[in-house]
Nucleic acid binder design. Structure first.
Lengths: 167, 167
DNA sequence: ATAAACCTTAGAGTATTCTCTAAGTCAATA
DNA sequence: TATTGACTTAGAGAATACTCTAAGGTTTAT
């Protein structure tokens, strides 16, 4: 049973253009062709296609995926190298998730700010907000922002001090 | 106390080039200038700078951030619109995290495959692996890949059936 | 037999986000 | 006074990942 570019594209939720682009970039060299040069995808190709799509979704660049597929084609001698690539990408993705969760905390902070401001009719409601009226997770972000400014001042004072010593 | 582009860049962990690029894109119109045209960042600018940087880290495009900052500058009449933008972005980030966790599962699957193959010296070790030797979380991914192929066959059979009916 | 609906390629064009260069200004230091 | 090291701008260049067009080939349906 063979499948065409369009069928595979639908299944991987990519456009046929994108599949051909990946092919041109050397990601699909394992896919056979018929006598007219048309790509013929087999069931046995699906695990690899799925892995390539997953690596892409994980944020891996096409260049990196190509390097990986080259190793795959070289056979058993490259298993350790492939394992390293996968484990490095695991770390990259974990870092990316942490970054996004961090950004999510800030979005939650802003949501609270705007919900309170919407009810009050003005963002000025936050100007003299007593700390006990601020939820703990929101206070945490406020603290981070305050720290950003404080560190800045600290840096400035240290530089000024340094200048004093030089004089 | 005023701060320069370089000082702010260091604090936000961006390059001065990037700060000026954001400025050119209309993200920093609230920042004042001195008599020579140099940007002067104040402590009161820091919350907004931090929010912009966080939105960027959350994956929001510069164009979207600009739209958001325009609303900020319009004042209290736009609070509801700003809240909507933030809540939409929350959803986007949550979806992105889900996508990455999904990709992470596949990377864990590949890690297991390669660790076993590395020990055996060949990826052929998986060809006749009895299911009870495969950890449940790994079997889950194997199942997903099998399903991808099965759905494909189903689709093909349905199309064939349709052709039969037409004849 | 002709049209529709696929497939192919090379290559152009687009969007995004930097990243850097060139040319110039200004303030402080040796 | 001259150099250093900030800052400014406009605009060029780069990297990535599509996205599409043009021109052509093959298969299927009427």
């Amino acid at each position: 049973m063979y499948y065409t570019v369009s069928e595979v594209a639908k299944r991987l939720e990519l456009s046929p253009h994108t599949i051909r682009f990946y092919s041109k970039e050397g990601l699909l060299d394992f896919v056979e062709r018929d006598q007219n040069g048309n790509r013929i995808f087999k069931e046995s190709d699906f695990e690899r296609l799925f892995i390539i799509a997953s690596l892409k979704r994980s944020g891996m660049s096409i260049k990196q995926i190509r390097e990986f597929t080259i190793l795959c084609d070289k056979g058993d001698s490259t298993i350790a190298d492939r394992l390293k690539i996968i484990m490095d990408q695991r770390e990259t993705v974990e870092e990316e998730i942490t970054k996004l969760q961090d950004a999510l905390d800030v979005l939650k902070y802003k949501t609270w700010l705007y919900e309170v401001a919407l009810e009050a009719g003005t963002t000025a409601v936050h100007d003299n907000m007593p700390p006990e009226k601020i939820p703990p997770n929101i206070r945490k972000i406020k603290e981070r922002i305050r720290k950003l400014t404080d560190d800045m001042e600290q840096r400035y004072k240290a530089a000024a001090q340094h200048t004093d010593n030089d004089e």
